[in-house]
Structures are given as structure tokens and as C-alpha cells.
Amino acid sequence: MKTPISNEEFYAGLQELPQPKYPFPDFIHPDFQKQREEYYEMIDKDYFFHSEMARQKHKQHNLVDIASRGCPFLKTLAELRPLACYAANGAMMDDYLDLCTPDEMDKINNRIIAILTGEEPNEPTENGIFYQFWTLRQYTITREMPDRLYQKFLQAIFGILTGYSHERAYYRANAIPPLSIYLIIRNNTSGALPFCKYVAMQKDYRLLPDEILEDPYILRLHTLCSLMIGIHNDIISLPKELHREGDTMNLVKVLQQENKITLKEAYMDALELHDSYLNEFLLLHENLPQFGKWQDMTYNYVQDLGIMVAGVFAWHTNDTSRYVNGGYVEGEYKPT
């Protein structure tokens, strides 16, 4: 581990650099405070295997706000719960398992998949990660989520789990991946693809047929959302990741290594790549294929995808505890 540094050194040279901007309004679900209270209770009840320091830090991070800001138009707290459970448990799991091996990650992933598909139908006897994924399934199947949407949601979560396994190899080797590999992995590990699928649970979008939700335009828009969120997360978390060994899955680090440029140049190139994805998103939004009677609804659905991206970024910029010096949660996983 590197020598501890002061807050001033931690942020030196980064505070004045520009950050992403989105042309979408900012919203938050009206039940966000109730969801927070459930989150605090869940941490105290189910995450006793984390250290007290880790639990307190997670509470300060308000990870369920990612769901409240990303899908603010869900009609009820009951509809918000599955996404909030995924967002909070997924982030805490990623922190906790920071140092596990790819093989260990694969074993964990396989059990999560069995729980989410119902192959392992019984309530897990141990609290924590597996119990929370079992709870996510119960929340979802009892909330009248159409099975076809649930399957899309699951497949996106499975993609994240695969991405976690792939990135662990780079973390443990303290190796920065090539750009092409980074983009493949980050498309999954940004965590945004399940959000893209869950946006269809808002308003009347669940009526949109599969031929629209699986259209190449829409799938490309999902990818753009995922990459924008991955990049803006990298930009926000860069001060933290510059000073921790193993935090190699960051676009700024990737570009600095790949192009042999300064940190500031790599930062600006990362922002430029982000903005190119945003411009492509806006172009596709205004030039959707002809979807007949679904045209207006599809246009509005894509608009709410943009609001989702902006909402996740708003969580990052409103949070003042996760990406500050000492605010992040160190990996505590120990193999059994």
C-alpha cells in the first residue's frame, strides 16, 4: 500500500478540471428518504460480516439514492425496492470482494445466478450478499414485473457478474488493461445496463414490445448509457484510484498508459470520449427508426434513459463521502 497522503495532495491538480455535463433535468423519487431508512436497517441486519467502519461508511454513501435518482418515475416504493436493492448490494459487494480471485468471483457469481433464476429457490440461511439477491428476486416477482422484462434485467446483472470476474484479473495483477479490453469490461461493470432495462418499468414503457426494446438502436443507446456512466464514475473516483494499488480499471489510467501522455491530457481525452458518446446518444435520440404507434413512447423512453444517466451522475456529485480521501471501503473478503 502507498504512504497515506493529505487531502490537499489527494486532490492536487484535479479540482479545477471540467466534469461531464448532461442536457437532462434532475429528479429524485419522492420516497427516497423511506428507501434510505430501509437501506440503513438492511446494513445493520444483513451486513454484520463487514467491519463496523465499513458499515458506517456505506450508510454515509446512501447507495440506494442511485436508484432513486436513476429511475425517479417509478410509481411506488415497492417498484423502487428491486432496483435500490440491486444498486446498494451490487456496490457493497464490489467493494467487499475487491481482492478476491477470478475463480472465487466465479463461484460467487454462479450462486447469485442460481438464486436470481430460482434454481436455488430457498431463502439463504446466511445474511448478506446472497440473502440480498434472494430478496431482490422476491421483490421483483411479487411486483408484477413482466417476466420478459425480468429476464432482460437478469441478463444485464449476469453481464455485470462476468465483468467483475474479468476485471479481478487486472486488479490482482495491478495491471492496466488496453483500451479495447477496458471498454468491453467497463460496459458491464459500470452497473448501468440493469438500470437501462429497469427504466422500462417506469410510466407505461413496459408496454413497449420486445422488437423495440431489442432493436439495435435501443441496444446501442443502452451501451452508450453504460459507457457514459462508467466514464463519469472513473472521472469522479480518479483521486481515490490514483492512490490505491490495484485500482486499474479507470479510463484515465488506461489512456495515460496507452498514449504515453500526462495525467491531465489523459483526463481531458477521457472527457472527450465521454462527450462523443453523449453526442451519439443525442443524435440517435433525435433520429430513431420508425416505430409506428410506439414512436412517441419510444422517444420518451430514450429521454428517460438520458435522465437516468444524469441521475446517476447527480448521485456522484451530491455524495461527499464515498470518493474522498479515506471515504471508500477497502475490500474485506477472505476466502473460506
Rank of each mutant, 00 (worst) to 15 (best):
T117W: 06
F291A: 00
M249H: 11
I235Y: 08
A270I: 03
K293W: 01
E258L: 06
A78P: 00
I231S: 06
L283A: 05
I66R: 11
E79D: 07
Q132G: 07
Q19M: 09
H61P: 00
K57R: 14
K57F: 04
L305M: 10
N300K: 12
N109L: 00
T76Y: 11
S180I: 01
C100Q: 04
D275T: 05
N300I: 09
P82F: 13
R168H: 07
H232N: 08
Q295R: 02
L74I: 03
L136R: 02
S276F: 00
E52P: 09
I43G: 10
E126T: 13
D296W: 01
A173I: 02
L305T: 05
A84T: 04
L161Q: 08
M92Q: 06
T135A: 09
Q132F: 04
L227D: 07
Y182F: 08
Y139W: 06
F281R: 02
P289I: 01
T320A: 06
G13Y: 02
I141N: 08
D204P: 00
K34F: 11
Q35T: 05
E258N: 09
G128L: 01
D234G: 10
Y96D: 12
M297S: 07
V312A: 08
G13H: 05
I218D: 02
K334H: 10
L221W: 10
I212V: 14
T248Q: 05
M268F: 08
Y22Q: 03
I236R: 15
S51R: 08
F24D: 15
N318H: 13
T189G: 05
Q155F: 07
L284I: 15
F133M: 08
Q19T: 12
A270E: 14
D269K: 15
A156H: 03
L154F: 12
A266D: 12
N7P: 07
H166I: 14
L97T: 06
S51G: 14
N174H: 13
G292N: 12
N188Q: 08
H243C: 03
